[in-house]
């Protein structure tokens, strides 16, 4: 299945520190109980929120439906797999206009 260990470990580790380790090393004070509660609930909700998002994308059932111009824009701006020379003069100007429009 399409899970990657690194992000899961990093995010889970971060929220584990907040939700499990921090409440223990907290200094004494009249509000200790409340602060512990706050930290634990923050960590649980935030981690779960991230996890649900990750799980939802882990095995995508549908793929994104994109305009052809948007695909060009993605390849040009994000992937860098497209250079402007790949197209002839007219298409380039046409696409560039629509590409900028789509990017905006």
């Amino acid at each position: 299945m399409g899970a990657d260990a690194v992000p899961i470990a990093v995010v889970t580790g971060f929220w584990a520190v907040v939700g499990i380790i921090l409440p223990f090393i907290l200094g004494k004070g009249p509000n200790k109980g409340v602060i512990q509660t706050v930290l634990v609930i923050t960590a649980v909700t935030s981690w779960l929120f991230w996890l649900l998002c990750y799980l939802h994308q882990m095995n995508p059932l549908i793929g994104p439906q994109l305009h052809n111009t948007t695909i060009l824009a993605i390849r040009y701006l994000w992937d860098g797999t497209l250079s402007l020379d790949d197209f002839n003069e007219t298409t380039t100007t046409n696409t560039m206009e629509t590409t900028t429009a789509a990017a905006i």
Binding site: P60, Q65, N68, I74, T81
Partner: peptide
């Protein structure tokens, strides 16, 4: 997600759905 379509597919199809 990457839209690795060739030029002709891109020019002929207005909307394309990527396949997971």
């Amino acid at each position: 997600w990457h839209g690795n379509y060739n030029e002709s597919t891109l020019l002929t199809n207005k909307e394309l759905t990527l396949d997971p």
